[in-house]
Nucleic acid binder design. Structure first.
Length: 968
DNA sequence: CTAGGGTTAG
């Protein structure tokens, strides 16, 4: 296939051409570090008007004798013409050659003009060299013009031309030129083959590579060591190990370069062991390694994380006297870093006599890998102080460190310096910036960056979609996923993981299934990460069968796969639908693989949700048994679990053994104390936290505000609400909702309503629900009605607002209104009450109960116990909370109350545990007022301590009283 | 005419 190429230009007389080229400066430079092209053109202009001084010497055969200026040489040339010396161009050629060998811009420019001026550029040899030089300066256009002025380009000229296109990133045009050359009957020589194979290697043009390989065999040059090296390299770059190996085996001899080419190929495909094997063979064959060989060997050591091999290689390269090679220094930094020895990387870096940008990149990359944010930033600044300009990869590395350290402020600083360098919209830098802002929780800034990247790739899309999904903005994540598909982004594994997370985060099974189909279409469903994301998505979206099916089909079940299953099952909060399955899976998992901190965090969360203290205890014991020094995160999860189960002693035991407390520890304990009604202690901890110089974050204020709310501390709540602003934290909707709850709980309904209506954010369902709850409690029909109408507009399908309002009417004696509302709920909008569920752990088993326990295999004794309690409690002053609105008899109503899942769970617990032992029940909704009163009475009659943990707080019942003091 | 292989990577 030949493509139309630029037609040859007409031959222009040298003198005419001279004036032409003077106006169109040929050295339009793209090289970043060479700046002053204005001098060049001015010089070109004055060149033409100079009068030439006759030379001092006419001995032009002396190659070493280089005139001080090219103009002087031109004078010699004129002199030679006058003297009518024969073989003139070849004499002048020597001078041209000398000049072209100098690598400075001004000489080149000057020589170029003069050479063109006298027509020497039309000689193949000089023309070829000029083409090479022009290409080096990135001026492909002028190189092309020059090439087409040549009368009869030879292979050398074609070679220069083809190689110029290759080095300027136009490999496909370069390959076409090769075919064009064959058509003009120029026989390709080994130089041409090398040059065109290089183009194929860069462009990964395997088909052309194969074709050219056949030309090479045909032309009998397949034993040329240079040609074979190029072939080898081409096959390696195209990932054709077999073909490359074939070329290598068939070669008549191997030298250090062919070996290095082979090793580099294996190293680039992360085949570390193969590289090390081949390296041994190479040495056995008596070939001495070069610095380039060592680069591949070091890369191999890091790819197999073998510090031992790395150190052997290090001493070996010192023996060979390559210690000061900068490439090797940089590779050593990388090797030590990837083999886990950050300090060694630092030593190598500090010992480098000369540092290039690669040295800084390797060291900053090492900081990023080892979480050394401060050092990374320091180096990033220092390199610039030393005049080394950061590259894209430098930014990528330093931003990675910043993202891992969630250092928002530093992130912004580096961001602005990326803007100064004009690369903030580069797709690599931009993707990393998106990642930084996502990881720091600033999604607005992340999205702004994302929007600014002209051609986002799969990674960019994946980062922003994951960002939204992981911050609970599933709907937004899904919208972006669809936009991504419309934009026709090429799908990769990471992107599939992202869109599956988006589906998971928005609990959208149908979307998840369609992305599953997409994964199958791209044949990526077997990829480890995609597979795990699928399992997690199905488990989270409640499709247990598919989750387990996919999990069982996995040939190899890694810790990650188990985590996907367990965290998926665990994440069904607040319904805890599959919490019990998650526990089963966990105990199976530890038989076969080692859990990690993610496993423990998910499973401890399950124990918290189910109030499964025994299970939690066993997992704690398992952790201690494993002898692992667990991460703070796991410690925090343990504390949270014990607090949620109402076991403050164990919680404080764990808290006291932690070597240090981080912000999560403080937040967890403050939240837990508040939940258990230990508000004074929670407030005290907040002060303690400040004294420890730990800056509170927005979660801290969630915890502290809800603690205030639990104790009705309105004043304190307002104080904290103002304090958070002083700490630079803008209150979010959750904080406003908590304030509404706090003010309402204290009985100031009007103030609470004012607060809602004047807040600067858009109100949400939670806030108005808090409002209606307190109206209900204080029987305020007026405000209650207004709240209800807002709630119905927001979410007509949510039954909880109807139920609350109906109860409010009933309590206010407005039975007709109550009944009307119930009928509307049942008939028109189909709003369904969320089914209540209660869990109780007996021994090591967690039992689940729902209202009326339909479908539960309950033995007679539980009902017998319920009947017994019913009559016992009545004698002890318990009055059933009968809602008169339902149109049923009070007897029926009372029976229904005794079908509540909390009561069944308690009855089940009472008959299945020893007398006097503590019961712990968890509830997926708030405990109802009737069950609350009944449990108070049960705790007295049965002489039991009972905990009911609901979504709001820990209720601790002892001797007829509850720790919440009926404030719930 | 001359020659090849390469560090840092979302």
């Amino acid at each position: 296939m030949l493509r139309e190429f630029a037609p040859p230009e007409l031959y222009i007389h040298p003198v005419d051409h001279y004036s032409n080229s003077a106006s169109s400066a040929p050295f339009v430079l793209h090289r970043s570090n060479q700046g002053c092209q204005s001098n060049v053109s001015s010089q070109i202009v004055c060149t033409s008007s100079l009068s030439w001084i006759p030379p001092q010497s006419t001995n032009l055969t002396e190659k070493t004798l280089l005139p001080t200026s090219f103009r002087e040489a031109y004078g010699q040339y004129k002199y030679l013409i006058e003297e009518e010396v024969s073989d003139l161009p070849s004499k002048f050629q020597n001078i041209v050659e000398q000049y072209l060998l100098c690598k400075d811009l001004e000489t080149h420019a000057e020589a170029y003009c003069i050479v063109c001026g006298i027509g020497l550029d039309l000689y193949n040899y000089i023309g070829s060299q000029l083409i090479t030089i022009l290409s080096e300066y990135g001026n492909v256009l002028e190189a092309t013009r020059l090439f087409y002025r040549l009368h009869d380009p030879d292979a050398f000229a074609w070679g220069a031309f083809i190689s110029g296109y290759t080095s300027n990133g136009q490999e496909n045009l370069a390959i076409n030129l090769y075919y064009q050359m064959i058509q003009t009957n120029v026989e390709p020589n080994s130089h041409i083959f090398r040059v065109v194979l290089k183009a194929c290697a860069n462009a990964l043009a395997l088909l052309d590579g194969w074709e050219i390989h056949s030309h090479i065999i045909f032309s009998d040059r397949d034993s040329n060591i240079f040609v074979c090296s190029a072939l080898l390299d081409m096959y390696m770059k195209c990932h054709r190990l077999e073909d490359a190996r074939g070329v290598f085996e068939d070669m008549p001899e191997h030298d250090s370069v062919t070996w290095s080419t082979l090793l580099a190929g294996y190293a680039s495909q992360d085949l570390g062991h193969e590289v090390l094997d081949l390296f041994c063979q190479m040495k056995k064959g008596g070939i001495s390694p070069t610095p380039v060989t060592f680069i591949s060997v070091l890369k191999a050591c890091s790819s197999i994380s073998s510090l031992e091999e790395g150190q052997i290689t290090h001493s070996s390269l010192i023996e060979h006297g390559y210690e000061d090679n900068i490439y090797l220094g940089n590779s050593l930094i990388d090797m030590y870093s990837k083999c886990g020895l950050f300090e060694h990387a630092q030593i190598v870096f500090n010992r480098l006599h000369v540092r290039d940008v690669g040295s800084w990149n390797a060291m900053i990359g090492s900081c990023a890998l080892h979480g050394r944010l401060d050092e990374g930033i320091y180096l990033f600044e220092k390199m610039q102080d030393e005049g080394v300009k950061p590259m894209i990869i430098t930014y990528v590395n330093v931003l990675k460190a910043i993202a891992d350290g969630a250092a928002l402020d530093v992130g912004r600083t580096v961001h602005s310096s990326a803007i100064m360098d004009g690369i903030e919209s580069d797709v690599f830098v931009g993707s990393m910036l998106v990642h930084v802002y996502v990881h720091c929780g600033s999604l607005e800034e992340a999205y702004a960056i994302f929007n600014n990247i002209p051609s986002p790739n799969a990674v960019t899309w994946g980062t922003i979609i994951c960002g939204y999904a992981e911050h609970g903005l599933g709907t937004e994540a899904l919208l972006l996923s669809k936009k991504m598909q419309e934009n026709g982004v090429e799908i990769d594994q990471g992107l599939l993981v992202a869109v599956l997370k988006a589906s998971e985060s928005s609990s959208c099974l149908t979307q998840g299934q369609s992305f599953h189909a997409l994964a199958v279409e791209w044949d990526m469903q077997h990829d480890e990460l995609v597979g795990n994301a699928l399992i997690s998505m199905y488990a989270t979206c409640g499709n247990l069968d598919d989750a387990i099916n996919l999990f069982n089909k996995r040939p190899h079940r890694s810790t990650m796969a188990w985590n996907a299953l367990i965290s998926g099952l665990a994440s069904q909060s607040p319904d805890y639908v599959h919490g019990r399955e998650a526990l089963t899976a966990f105990w199976q998992m530890i038989q076969v693989v080692q859990p990690n901190e993610i496993t423990y965090m998910s499973i401890l969360k399950v124990c918290s949700n189910l109030c499964a203290l025994n299970q939690g205890n066993m997992i704690h014991a398992h952790l201690i048994e494993g002898g692992l020094r667990w991460e703070l995160k796991v410690g925090n999860a343990l504390i949270a679990m014990y607090l949620k189960c109402g076991n403050l002693e164990y919680a404080s035991c764990v808290a006291n053994t932690l070597p240090s407390w981080d912000i999560v520890t403080f937040n967890t304990v403050i939240e837990g104390f508040g939940r258990s009604g230990l508000v004074k202690q929670a407030l005290h901890l907040f002060d303690e936290m400040l004294r420890n110089n730990i800056e509170p974050n927005d979660s801290t204020f969630i915890s502290i505000l809800s603690a205030c709310s639990h104790d009705g501390l309105v004043e304190k709540g307002h104080e904290f609400f103002e304090l958070m602003k002083l700490h630079g934290i803008g209150p979010k909707i959750d904080h406003y909702d908590l304030m509404v709850d706090l003010i309402g709980r204290a009985g100031y309904l009007n103030e609470a309503e004012d607060f809602l209506e004047t807040m600067p954010l858009t109100t949400d369902f939670v806030g108005w629900m808090a409002m209606l709850t307190h109206c209900n409690r204080l029987v305020n029909v007026d405000i209650g009605r207004r709240s209800f109408s807002v709630l119905v507009k927001m979410d007509p399908s949510n039954a909880s607002s109807y139920v609350l309002m109906s109860n409010l009417y009933a309590d206010a004696g407005m039975l007709e209104d109550a009944e009307k509302l119930d009928n509307i709920r049942k008939s028109t909008n189909g709003a369904i009450k969320k089914p209540g569920k209660a869990f109780i752990e007996i021994g090591n088993k967690v039992h689940e109960f729902s209202v009326g326990c339909r479908g539960q295999d309950l033995s007679g004794p539980v009902y017998a116990k319920l009947q017994e309690l019913r009559s016992q409690l009545k004698q002890n002053g318990y009055k059933p909370h009968i809602n008169m609105a339902q149109g049923r008899s009070s007897k029926e109503e009372e029976s229904m109350l005794w079908e509540h899942c909390e009561k069944i769970a308690i009855a089940f617990g009472l008959i299945n545990t020893a007398e006097g032992s503590t019961l712990r029940v968890s509830k997926n909704l708030r405990v109802c007022s009737d069950c609350h009163d009944a449990t108070k009475a049960i705790s007295k009659v049965e002489k039991r301590e009972i905990f009911i943990v609901d979504t709001y707080r820990v209720h601790h019942f002892v001797g007829g009283q509850c720790s919440c003091q009926d404030c719930y």
